[in-house]
Design a protein around this nucleic acid. Structure first.
Length: 150
DNA sequence: GCCAACGTTGGC
DNA sequence: GCCAACGTTGGC
């Protein structure tokens, strides 16, 4: 089993939204590295759910991979912001996984906390200028963040 | 294949 | 709202 971190703008789609929807297709990722990481995900993998560009940036809780990567349908929709003219049904360019709500932390583990915890050294999201919206997380880092969220 | 220009992300 | 850092595009 692997562990991941996924970013979202809290005002766009928050953990509360996921809790309400229970499950959603993580559409709209338009970055190759992020796409490749999603293709590595397996059902049951756990995800730290991170809000960026929010009042309080940080990990708000946990989501779980509910379905492995499949074609992102928004790439075929000319009305969509995520339309991709290079994509065909036979050869899609973009993929997404389905994720489901797992847990909301008692309080978010803020970016400041992530940065100041010596146990979390090496976590990608801590790095200045880190823009990758889907990233792998080590098991020990994952467990540490969950402990901080309790 | 290089790299400048551009658009976007994301912390502050 | 600002701006630094980043990823992608496209001309050469």
């Amino acid at each position: 089993m692997k562990y991941w971190l996924m970013k979202t703008e809290g005002s766009e789609y928050s953990l509360e939204d996921l809790k309400r929807d229970k499950r959603t297709a993580w559409e709209g990722v338009r970055n190759f590295q992020a796409r490749n990481f999603m293709q590595e995900m397996r059902e049951g993998d756990l995800i730290l759910f991170y809000h960026s560009s929010s009042e309080v940036n940080g990990v708000y809780g946990i989501a779980k991979v509910a379905a492995i990567a499949h074609s992102d349908k928004t790439q075929f929709d000319p009305q969509s912001d995520y339309f991709e003219k290079r994509a065909t049904k036979e050869k899609p360019v973009w993929y997404c996984v389905d994720i489901e709500f797992a847990k909301k932390f008692a309080k978010p583990v803020t970016l400041a906390e992530l940065k100041s915890d010596p146990n979390l050294e090496g976590m990608r999201v801590r790095e200045r200028g880190s823009r990758l919206s889907v990233q792998p997380v080590s098991e020990s880092h994952f467990k540490r963040v969950v402990a901080l969220g309790r």
